[in-house]
Simulated scan of single mutants.
Amino acid sequence: MNDVQDRFYSLLGAKIGVETESLTEGTTLESLDLDSLLIVEISVAVEKEFGVVLDELQLAPERTVGEVVGTLDGRLKAAS
């Protein structure tokens, strides 16, 4: 795992109450039963943790955790 993935998995696990070991790159956000409020909370937490904004499309239910990490990683690289 890279640093971005590690940090995102920890953030996600803390927000939804799951062990980070149970998360994989193929885990969909839908399978984690995220409602719209949790998606907003995750978006805010990502902004605080990483300094970048992920909107609702990037946190859509059909997206996988791996896709979100990839988007986040790309945004961080573009910002630096």
Rank of each mutant, 00 (worst) to 15 (best):
R7S: 15
Y9S: 12
Y9L: 11
Y9T: 06
S10M: 03
L11P: 08
L11K: 04
L12G: 10
L12F: 07
L12V: 01
L12A: 09
G13K: 01
G13S: 05
K15H: 12
K15A: 15
K15N: 15
I16G: 05
G17D: 04
V18T: 12
T20W: 01
T20M: 02
E21R: 09
S22T: 14
L23Y: 03
L23W: 01
T24E: 14
T24G: 09
E25M: 12
G26A: 15
T27A: 10
T27Y: 00
T27D: 00
T28N: 03
T28H: 07
T28Y: 13
T28I: 10
T28P: 07
L29V: 03
L29M: 12
L29Y: 01
S31A: 15
S31T: 13
S31V: 10
L32A: 10
D33Y: 00
D33G: 04
L34S: 08
L34G: 07
D35S: 03
S36T: 14
S36H: 02
S36D: 11
L38W: 02
E41W: 09
I42S: 13
I42K: 04
I42E: 02
V44N: 09
V44Y: 11
A45S: 14
A45I: 05
A45P: 08
E49R: 09
E49L: 04
F50M: 10
G51D: 05
G51H: 14
V52H: 08
V53D: 01
L54G: 03
D55Q: 10
D55I: 02
E56H: 11
E56C: 08
Q58D: 12
P61D: 15
P61A: 03
E62W: 05
E62K: 14
E62V: 15
R63G: 07
G66I: 03
G66W: 00
G66E: 01
E67D: 07
E67P: 10
E67T: 01
V68P: 15
V68W: 08
V68C: 07
G70S: 15
G70L: 06
T71C: 01
T71A: 01
